[in-house]
Measured scan of single mutants.
Amino acid sequence: MQAFVKTLTGKTITLEVEPSDTIENVKAKIQDKEGIPPDQQRLIFAGKQLEDGRTLSDYNIQKESTLHLVLR
Rank of each mutant, 00 (worst) to 15 (best):
V17T: 03
L56I: 08
R42E: 12
L71P: 09
P19R: 07
G47L: 04
G35S: 05
G47S: 05
L67V: 07
D52I: 05
K33E: 07
P19V: 08
L56V: 07
A28V: 12
S65E: 09
Q40I: 12
E24N: 08
V70S: 08
V70Y: 14
T7Y: 13
G10E: 03
Q2D: 05
T9R: 10
I13G: 00
T66Y: 08
S65N: 08
H68F: 14
T12K: 07
K48P: 01
Q41K: 01
S65P: 07
P38M: 15
D58P: 00
G53F: 11
A46Q: 15
G10R: 03
N60V: 05
D52L: 05
V70P: 01
G53S: 11
I36F: 12
A28Q: 13
Q2T: 15
D58G: 04
K33F: 08
L56M: 05
E16T: 13
G10Q: 04
A3F: 14
F45E: 01
D58C: 03
T12L: 13
Y59C: 02
Q31F: 15
N60Q: 09
F4T: 07
F4G: 02
V17G: 01
V70A: 08
I13F: 12
Q31E: 10
Q41R: 01
I36C: 04
V70F: 14
I36N: 03
I61N: 02
V70W: 10
K33S: 11
E16I: 14
D21K: 01
G47P: 01
S57K: 12
L15H: 00
M1T: 04
K48C: 09
I36P: 04
K29W: 04
P38K: 15
L71N: 06
P38S: 14
T7I: 12
S65Q: 09
A3I: 15
K11F: 09
T22E: 03
I61C: 03
M1S: 04
K48A: 10
I13C: 02
K27C: 02
T22A: 04
D21R: 02
K29M: 13
Q2L: 15
Q31V: 04
R54L: 11
M1C: 04
T9K: 10
I30T: 01
I30D: 00
K6H: 13
A28F: 13
K11P: 04
A28I: 14
V5R: 01
E34Y: 08
I23D: 00
I23V: 10
V26H: 00
A3K: 01
T9A: 12
T7F: 15
L69I: 07
V5C: 04
G10T: 03
I23K: 00
N25D: 12
P37C: 07
F4A: 04
I36Q: 02
E64T: 08
T22M: 07
P38F: 13
G35V: 02
K29S: 04
Q31N: 10
I36R: 02
Q40H: 12
S57V: 06
S65I: 09
K11W: 09
R72D: 11
T9M: 11
T12Y: 09
E24V: 07
T14D: 05
L43E: 00
R72V: 14
K63D: 15
T14M: 12
L71K: 07
T14H: 08
N25C: 11
V26W: 01
Q2P: 08
G47I: 02
P19T: 08
Q62P: 12
K27R: 05
G53A: 10
T7L: 15
T7M: 15
L8A: 14
T12D: 03
S20G: 12
K27S: 01
N60A: 08
L56Q: 00
Y59R: 00
L67C: 01
K63M: 10
E64N: 15
E64D: 15
P38I: 15
Q31D: 05
Y59N: 02
S65H: 08
T55K: 10
I30M: 03
Q62C: 08
Q62D: 10
D32P: 02
I36W: 14
T9F: 13
Q2S: 10
K33I: 14
D58H: 11
I23F: 02
T55I: 07
D21L: 05
D39M: 09
R42C: 14
F45C: 04
A46K: 15
Q40L: 12
K48D: 06
I44R: 06
Q41P: 01
M1W: 12
M1P: 02
N25V: 14
T22R: 08
I23A: 03
A3V: 15
F4L: 07
I23P: 02
E34Q: 07
H68V: 13
S57C: 05
G53T: 10
V17N: 01
D39C: 11
F45A: 03
D58F: 14
D39K: 11
I13D: 01
K63C: 07
E24Y: 15
P19Y: 08
Q41M: 14
K29A: 06
D52R: 04
T9Q: 12
F4P: 02
P37V: 05
D21T: 10
F45D: 01
L67T: 02
S57I: 08
I13R: 01
V5G: 01
T55H: 06
I36K: 02
V26S: 00
T55F: 06
Q62F: 11
D32I: 13
